[in-house]
Amino acid sequence: MKTMNVFKALALAVITLVNLLNTQAMAQNNFITNEEVKNNLVVSRTIYKQDGNYLHNHMRYEFTYDEQNRLISKTASKWDGTVDKWIPYFQMTYRYEANEVIMSYARWSESQETFSKDKKETVYELNENNIPVACHQVTGIPALIAERR
């Protein structure tokens, strides 16, 4: 009797999990992506939300690269339908130094009209094959300078 109840509970859990995963997969199907490519590099990506036969602006990402085709910034914007324009959301910047990559993340501050809110930095140490082997997070640029001394 106990074995039968455990089996029923396990079967119910599996069915619930499958339904949940199916729902998430269907939700992802409601988005359409359009990429703009220049010189074999993606310079922008716009994500549209599909509603029946209509597409609505959702998110936009813009990418910039250095002369070695390395990503140096990724800027995200969200669509605001009430004012019909893209609103900045966050920006990630990348600095490449000897054996490390420094990634900065900053949220958009409406009051200051700049990417400064919640600024964080992460340093990725690279091995001789340019593969990250360690990372540590530093909050704010003064903390990063102090840590390196």
Rank of each mutant, 00 (worst) to 15 (best):
Y48D: 04
A146K: 11
A13Q: 05
A134Y: 15
A106N: 06
S44W: 07
N127I: 08
A76L: 07
A106G: 02
N69R: 01
F63Q: 01
I32T: 02
K49Y: 03
E100G: 00
K119P: 10
T122S: 05
R107F: 05
H136P: 05
A9I: 14
N22G: 12
S44C: 05
D84S: 13
L41E: 01
I47L: 09
S111W: 11
Y96W: 03
K2H: 15
E67G: 10
P132S: 06
N129P: 02
Y105I: 01
V42T: 14
F90W: 01
S44H: 07
T64L: 11
I145G: 10
A134G: 13
N34Y: 14
S109N: 09
N19V: 10
E97Y: 04
A146G: 07
R149V: 08
G140W: 06
T82P: 10
W86V: 00
S116C: 10
S73V: 00
E147Q: 04
L10K: 12
L10P: 08
V6R: 09
L41S: 05
E67M: 12
E100N: 07
K78T: 15
K74S: 10
K119F: 14
N57W: 08
M92S: 06
I32A: 07
E113L: 12
S104H: 07
T122M: 03
Q28S: 10
V123H: 03
K120W: 00
S111P: 12
R149I: 09
N127F: 06
V42H: 06
T139M: 08
M1P: 11
T46Y: 05
E110W: 02
S104A: 03
A27T: 08
H56G: 08
V123Y: 01
Y105M: 04
T16K: 07
T23W: 13
E62C: 09
E147P: 00
L20A: 13
V123K: 00
V101N: 01
I47N: 01
D80G: 02
D118S: 05
R45Q: 14
Q112D: 14
E97A: 01
